[in-house]
Amino acid sequence: MSPISVTPPSTNKGRGGNERTSSMVKPSHTKSIMTAAFIIVLLWLSAERTDATVTQLVTGAPEMGKLLVEMFPPDWSYVTTIWAPMMETVQMAVLGTTIGAMLAVPIALLASGNVTRSKWLYIPARLLLNLIRTIPDLLFAAIFVAIFGLGAVAGVAALILFSFGLISKLLYESIEAIDPGPLEAMTAVGANKLQWIRFGVIPQVTAQFISYLLYTFEVNVRAAGVLGLVGAGGIGLLLTRVLDQLRYDRACMIILLTLVIVLVIDYISYRIQEKLL
């Protein structure tokens, strides 16, 4: 923040009246101390504001312990009931990711400075992407439930927007980093803009695109599991229900199954990426 910190240390001027040989002067720690103090004050104010105290945690811990005890053993037989909603969760993630990814491609191209060239196009595109990425998936879901009503459609819509934001951001950053050589070559052979993109840009980012797609899918499966908390379909609906009924053994079963599905998907996705890269 002070201009001093931006200049390289080798040109450090003797500060604080002590004008000896330039860099022999011990640099002052004022800035680090101020930063630390600022952070501590922020934390203290935050703790005040939210009434967060350690005592509360200590007194609450037995309650939490009781809850954890009640979770075990999980209600294994509940698997038959939750299997269908679990699959619905995966389906939501598949659709949300795919549609989001398809929408992401054009906007990512638009947001890349080396493809679009015009500031008037890529800056607004990036702005849009940044704005979309400020809203978390569950918030999208709450809004879409208000729009579409309860059910998986609201969840899919939320995941579409969320995936769109995530993939287009990652993708445009990769596009900006591609090798300009093939692009020049395409210009040299007289390609039009679409041909230029098809043969110059796309081949260079396909592998990354697929890996982002898989990554987003992993994130979405996790996310889809909780969208039901706001009524947007999937396994989360049941989770709220069993928690309201204080059936923690069933809640545990839901969490375990989600965990297994997520780990299986992570593993498959990891293997696919290994094959691709």
Partner: peptide, 28 residues
């Protein structure tokens, strides 16, 4: 990775049981 798979919102529900509803549960 086990901790990562546990969504924060589910953790929050559990902490609400421990410390009651409010910001503190969210922090934890």
């Amino acid at each position: 990775s086990f901790i990562r798979t546990f969504p924060e919102i589910v953790m929050a529900i559990m902490f609400i049981k421990a410390v009651g509803p409010g910001a503190y549960a969210g922090i934890l």
